[in-house]
Design a protein around this nucleic acid. Structure first.
Lengths: 229, 229
DNA sequence: GAGTCTATCAAACGTTTGTTTGAAATCAAA
DNA sequence: TTTGATTTCAAACAAACGTTTGATAGACTC
């Protein structure tokens, strides 16, 4: 039956997410799913194939649950960025009902397996494309590299609320998501990033209009060099 | 001898970092270290204790290699932030000689084991304190929560260059560290964050001087609400 | 140099693991 | 009902793993 296959996939997600691939036993999953041990080898080629199927299943469930926003023509780029950040946080950071989606996907990021390539193709790339689209609107005269760096800054801020969770709890006793809520966090990240984007835009235009150096001298390139070696 | 213990620890780091705890076998490490298999059980209580010792060893090596900067009284807060970001990137993101330091520590962050508490105490907390100190200089009239959010944004940007490495390569073919270099990345993150901080400071002062609403109306709170459920 | 403590080693142990096996059960079509 | 394919099941298998063992060699004290 196809139902057994689905029960296995649904049981696998949370367990793989919590324990990781190696520490998870197929016995544990089959028991949780209420199926026979051999069902995994029967419905999937082996444990690794099963794991990959489970990751894809989780990514699909995550995308279904928190779909990418769709905007009309009247929506400003700033609103789009807030929508993107909110979606991002809801997908990876928030511990709502299926807390394990983000956990599992993060595991794939940190210790990539064979599932990583498909994960990037189906899950990461669409979000990446959407963010770059918004950034094209926000920074129309920017170079591709500038947008790349900006995208990294925005994604890093979002992702940190999943990646840094354990350390945050150890460090301050609670996560920022719990303390502020997704809405507040999304607004912070959005306004933080918009301010930086706007500053860079101003800097660029003032630099292109008057080629004279020395104006608008800020701290962008301090003197000190530190750290390596 | 104490030399065997050291050889084991040095051999353990890269292997644990690459394969993860469960997928690493003590046989592999002992072979790489050129010691007998039983040496691990002899010098450490068991595999987990050995792993924890390896993590601590890696953290110590990382701190020795890239120490926290020390500033004189004349150094501006902006320079300090750049110094902090550079140190951070050099510690975790850069793939210099011992590429595995950051890798191993990141794993402890994302998938914490028993070593996490000590790791936070010895490694994370000093950096956290240093960053908050710099932020106190940069945003003297800010609330504690504002500084917390800002610190999260900065740390998230830095950490992403380690956490997101595998996905970056899958997505764009190369890491940002390889494409831009640490110096450029540190400058970007610093100026990005400074612009956001400055914007927030302006906003705060204009809000406190004239209590009249409606001025300085920006996009900080767009209308749309999206994502959850 | 005998005695004692420490360190190293090859070998083996017991457990857990993913996977396979062959029989039983279920279901659909003829 | 019979036939044949598909799915489930308990049991067993072989390999890999962390750990232990008992012997051996070295270092040091008296």
């Amino acid at each position: 039956m196809d139902e057994t296959r689905l029960r296995l996939l649904n049981a696998a997600g949370p367990i793989f997410a919590e324990r990781g691939y190696r520490a998870t036993t197929v016995r544990e999953i089959s028991q949780e799913a209420g199926t026979n041990l051999a069902a995994i080898s029967y419905h999937f080629e082996d444990k690794e194939g099963f794991y990959i199927a489970a990751v894809k299943h989780a990514a699909q469930g995550c995308m279904d649950r928190v779909p990418l926003p769709q905007w009309g023509a009247a929506v400003s780029a700033e609103e789009k960025l807030l929508g993107f950040v909110t979606t991002f946080l809801n997908r990876v950071a928030v511990d709502h009902d299926p807390a394990w989606h983000g956990q599992l996907l993060m595991r794939e990021m940190v210790l990539p397996t064979r599932a990583c390539a498909e994960f990037v193709r189906d899950y990461v790339r669409p979000m990446h494309g959407m963010l770059l689209g918004v950034l094209c609107e926000l920074m129309p005269k920017s170079s591709e590299k500038e947008r790349w760096l900006t995208a990294l800054s925005i994604v890093g801020q979002c992702l940190h609320h999943r990646v840094g969770q354990a350390v945050m709890i150890e460090l301050t006793g609670e996560t920022a998501v719990a303390a502020f809520g997704v809405k507040k966090l999304a607004e912070h990240i959005t306004s933080f990033s918009l301010a930086a984007i706007e500053h860079a835009t101003k800097l660029r235009s003032s630099k292109s209009k008057l080629a004279a150096p020395g104006t608008n001298r800020r701290v962008d390139r301090p003197a000190r060099k530190r750290g390596s070696r």
